[in-house]
């Protein structure tokens, strides 16, 4: 029978030397007490963060112009969500690296039609507003070029809009039905009327916030709140927490890759980073099999420190 040669980084002779009393259960009990005291101490001293959630209402009230601009981008299909691609729609180009594109393979699974879900749908629920319903009908019946012309004109007007008493005021222009639709939606959101119609399903109480969150994240208001709290991707934000609390520091490597060229500027950055992290995680799990990597402990000799009593007695 052949046996592989002894490799000090893979094999070790089992221990036949002396043993010492060691009370594992007592150790566990002491560890429980210590950890509980440390955790309770940290909770008492530092508490925990709880920044209130942003609602479509607070967004429309605090930044009505941004809300209107975002609503317009959902209507004319220029928003981030409208251009996203799978799994939400066929809008944009799915991320792809060397022909590998899981997004494309999986396809659309959580369908989002931004004009229907974020504009037409909510406006249809508006009671006692025949003018608004007529405006929607006129818009939907118009040609694509006419729709684009209205949207462009209103977008330009919004770019220099003012806010008076919380209402968006724009210069006159040829906006067709678009101005009334967007203004009605903004007013609806300001009143808090958008919390109902937006959720994904018709259930009484939906726990699925996919659509409101996509809408919210298309605007500059939400992005500005994140940026002010150092939470955006280019601020290494994935490992950060609101306030001065420590966050998910263990994501440091994941968030770091997004800062490294050429990933930083790649349109498939997310896929690239995930591929790298999956490969590195496999390397970590397979360290015991990888020559060189598994020899680092023996070469660095940190173990001499850990087992110094053992080596002192052995000599």
């Amino acid at each position: 029978m052949t046996r592989k040669a002894f490799n000090p980084d893979r094999d070790v002779a089992e221990w036949n030397g002396p043993k010492v009393p060691y009370d594992l259960l007592k150790e566990f009990a002491i560890a429980m007490v210590v950890v509980t005291l440390v955790v309770v101490g940290l909770a008492v001293v530092f508490s925990s963060p709880d920044d209130p959630a942003v609602t479509l209402q607070s967004w429309a009230q605090n930044s009505p112009v941004d809300f209107a601009q975002t609503a317009l981008s959902e209507l004319d299909g220029s928003s981030g969500t409208a251009q996203y691609g799978p799994p939400y729609n066929a809008g944009g180009a799915p991320q792809s690296v060397a022909g590998i594109s899981p997004e494309r393979w999986v396809g659309v699974h959580i369908p989002v039609n931004t004009a229907q879900d974020f504009v037409f749908g909510p406006l249809a629920t508006l009671a006692g507003a025949p003018g608004v319903h007529r405006a929607v009908a006129i818009y939907q019946a118009a040609s694509d070029s006419q729709k684009a012309a209205w949207a462009t004109a209103y977008g330009n007007a919004l770019a220099s809009a003012r806010t008076v008493d919380g209402h968006v005021v724009v210069a006159r222009g040829h906006f067709g039905p678009v101005a009334l639709m967007i203004q009605s939606l903004t007013a609806m959101a300001e009143r808090g009327g958008l919390s109902g119609p937006l959720p994904a399903s018709s259930q009484f109480s939906s726990v699925d916030q996919t659509k409101p969150l996509l809408f919210l994240s298309d605007g500059s208001y939400f992005a500005g709140l994140g940026s002010a709290r150092n939470l955006t991707g280019d601020q290494w934000g994935m490992m950060n927490e609101t306030g001065n609390y420590p966050g998910q520091a263990w994501l440091w490597l994941y968030t770091m890759w997004y800062q490294v060229p050429p990933i930083k500027s790649s349109s498939s950055a997310d896929l690239l980073v995930w591929m790298i992290m999956i490969a590195l995680t496999a390397v970590l799990a397979l360290v015991p099999f990888i020559p060189g990597l598994r020899s680092i402990p023996r070469w660095t000799r940190v173990y001499r420190l850990i087992w110094r009593n053992h080596y002192r007695q052995a000599t």
Binding site: W105, D270, W274
Partner: peptide, 30 residues
């Protein structure tokens, strides 16, 4: 809260890129 709203809208892109986002929807609180 704001933190979970923010993290969900950020995390969706990475998870969507892997294809898993179609089934593991980080925007779905439930």
């Amino acid at each position: 809260n704001f933190d979970s709203q923010w993290i969900s809208t950020q995390a969706k892109d990475g998870i969507n890129a892997t294809g898993a986002g179609a089934f593991f929807n980080v925007l779905d609180f439930g």
